[in-house]
Nucleic acid binder design. Structure first.
Lengths: 235, 235
DNA sequence: CAGTGGTCTAGACCACTTT
DNA sequence: AAGTGGTCTAGACCACTGA
């Protein structure tokens, strides 16, 4: 733990506890530097973190204020998770049903999105995620099979993301998402407990490793009244 | 323009131009510090920017690499804009039709989301946004009328966000968004050229000023096949 | 004009990777 | 062991705000 992280944690805690109330001025950097026995630069770095988290507002010449929103939406709300459903809904019972699991070659579209050659193998997976016994999300996934080898039934029935991070020791680097609405498909009607007239929320995503290599393209579909996608966006 | 911004710009340009190719090592910080005649800390600050933009990957002990995705999705793609439709679609003709424009008091729900008292005035606005002559988005907006005074027909027919930033000289501080799918409502069918069975994509949002005061709650609805919501999310 | 936060430096030491 | 990026310092100067 670095000094600036420790200071950021300490000040974040003071904001949460109300020691530094919403809308009030925080002590200036020189005072804080004295209090924590560090240089002012280090205090500033701590403030950089809290600013990114949306907790404070800095005004040159005036001082540093606690934002009105500091208490309402938690500071981690802005971070989109890569842990997959299994961890996102850790208080619920998440199960998976494999609808289809094939090896194939990519078409031209997928070759482009996943940076693949014509003869690089891919997994084609269709999985139904079941939460507390109810069908929840229907996932259509295409994955680079050279990058993510060894995917099997056991992995698919648990968490693929955990497998990639823990067993393969790979790190995620980001994702691109496209969110839209669609009419229910035959698949949706069969597996998601949808009627023909029920809208479906679809999240398309390309997920990257830390060096920028795309390893997965997927479409997650769910019945319109079961899930929303939330974003907290600062500044 | 600060030195670290100038260095970040210069290096970003080299990445875009291919001087530093994708997947290659960038010169080390000491060399760059010499080249630009600055201290190493300043080079590091420039790198901080490029890392946030998702252009580079830094490995302690190894060096700094250009990410594979550095060229594909532009570095500004990760930033969600507050400029409203008028600027987002600046190459298209954006018009607005005011469906309804009222003053009212907030109900309990809105009192909570917009941090208002029972007797604080609010605008209730329903606007249809028309792009290239076609109905595009139906916006239901509730706005704090004390914070954003002087909204009138002229403002509504142009850009409300421009009015807030330019004329009122207020700065935005972030937003919270909830994206979901829904069935078409009577309003949608009447104004969005929807059929009863057409799904609708809805984006609910609360928008904040820089000190964290919420000033607007809105729902933007559009026909399922006319618009998606895109997010680039780094790390 | 005093006080705030932002930038920048020159140098030290540390953690880590690669050879 | 050499070289990389990360942290931290003590101090300087600057830009801006508010009384």
């Amino acid at each position: 733990m670095t000094k600036y992280e420790e200071i950021a944690n300490a000040i974040r805690e003071r904001i949460k506890q109300g020691t530094y109330p919403v809308d009030s001025l925080i002590p200036d950097q020189v005072s804080l530097a004295k209090e924590f026995n560090v240089s002012r630069m280090t205090v500033k770095r701590a403030m950089d973190i809290l600013e990114l988290e949306g907790l404070i507002l800095r005004k040159r010449g005036a001082g540093t204020f606690v934002k009105k929103t500091a208490l309402s939406h938690g500071y981690t709300a802005s971070i989109i998770e890569y842990e997959g459903l299994t961890k996102q809904l850790s208080d619920k019972e998440v199960k998976s049903k494999i609808i289809s699991f094939k090896l194939d070659f990519p078409d031209e579209e997928i070759q482009k999105t996943l940076m693949l050659d014509k003869h690089d193998p891919i997994y084609k997976i269709i999985r139904l995620r079941i939460v507390d016994g109810k069908p929840y999300i229907l996932e259509h996934t295409i994955m680079n099979a050279n990058l993510i080898p060894g995917v099997n039934e056991e992995v698919l029935l648990n968490s693929v993301y955990k497998y990639i991070q823990k067993d393969l020791n790979l790190k995620f680097g980001g994702a691109h998402r496209i969110i839209g609405a669609d009419k229910a498909s035959e698949y949706d009607i069969e597996h998601l407990n949808c009627r023909e007239e029920d809208p479906v929320l679809e999240i398309e995503q390309i997920v990257y490793l830390e060096d920028g290599t795309p390893f997965e393209y997927s479409k997650s579909r769910n019945k319109y009244d079961t899930r929303t996608y939330n974003i907290t966006d600062i500044r």
